[in-house]
Nucleic acid binder design. Structure first.
Lengths: 182, 182
DNA sequence: AAGATCATGTAAATCGTTACATGATTGT
DNA sequence: ACAATCATGTAACGATTTACATGATCTT
């Protein structure tokens, strides 16, 4: 029942940035910012929030505005802040990566070469779409410089460079496979 | 008890490449080939193998050589082959990515800028180490060209380009943060 | 009044990792 | 004989996703 994974820290961190938020808003914010390297679902957010409250890392501050909608709004406690900071200064653990596309390519000998080329063309399209999304966001972020957008830009740049590298790789892999085909 | 995730296909695929293998050897082979984009542990391999056998996708072919060690050696059945091929021709699903380093960077405003720079320097070292490992493997693979090494090389190249992009990104991020510090 | 979206949660299933447990065989 | 490594498995736990369930409020 007690969640003790990384989700905790993702939520703690978002709460640290937003100062004050409901589970619902937390999710919305992550969707428009961290979604390409970190996602949470409602089914993890609400239980984690409950758990963090039990641990006294966050507290409920019932919606302060007049228009009272039944929202549970939370803030970090000082204990929560220090737990978050402690986690932040630890070096990041590299997480297990499972890349299904790579797995399928690795098994490429077992299917006609055209299938593999198709997979790559398909991926190329998706990478291109991603890239333009990222570049759009980057453009928007660049217009309102702040210390927070600084870090958003840095993480976003990582996404952009990764995708660009993937695109180049797609092209060279397609080229290689086409030359083998002949 | 019945495993139905991607592990199944990873194991099926490896068995397809190796033609015949024990759980132990499967693991060893993955360690020296797919480990940087796909790993399995014994605790997933053995139950999956059992499950695949129940599904008649693989069959046991007791160690055929004289020196009989108690090994369970499996091969794909024709049903297994077609299930594998069916999976191979489907486009790869993009899997959820969780990058803890990005998450910490994203929350960068909440810690002293030097901490973040430290994280990046640390990562740079790890990326460099990875890169040289990959390049070594690439060198070895290039010496024995075969249709299997072709696909190994393609996936490996992806790893190399990803890491190179990450390295470049580290440098530019460090540079940005240092210039902000002043 | 209807549909979208706000808002929160539970239950079950899925999936994977860590730790535990055991014993045979090979090389030195 | 001892260590390494070959070889297979189970149990418990940890963590996340999917499906389910409900109802209020806002917009048109």
């Amino acid at each position: 029942m007690a969640k003790s994974g990384k989700s905790q820290f993702a939520i703690l961190g978002m709460l640290g940035l937003l100062k004050k938020s409901s589970g619902y808003d937390l999710k919305k914010h992550m969707e428009s910012s961290t979604q390409y390297f970190w996602k949470e679902t409602f089914s993890s957010i609400y239980p984690v929030l409950e758990d963090l409250e039990k641990q006294k890392l966050i507290v409920k501050v019932e919606s302060p505005t007049k228009n009272d909608r039944k929202r549970n709004v939370y803030t970090l406690t000082s204990k929560g802040k220090s737990v978050l900071e402690h986690w932040l200064i630890q070096p990041a653990e590299s997480m297990q990566i499972r890349n299904e596309l790579m797995l399928k390519l690795f098994f490429g000998t077992m299917v006609p070469i055209n299938i593999t080329i198709e997979h790559l063309e398909q991926q190329k399209k998706e990478f291109k779409k991603k890239l333009s999304t990222y570049q759009e966001i980057k453009h928007e972020l660049s217009e309102i410089p702040s210390s927070e957008s600084l870090y958003s830009l840095i993480t976003l740049d990582h996404g952009i460079k990764q995708v660009m590298a993937s695109l180049e790789w797609c092209d060279s892999a397609i080229k290689t496979l086409k030359s083998v085909k002949k």
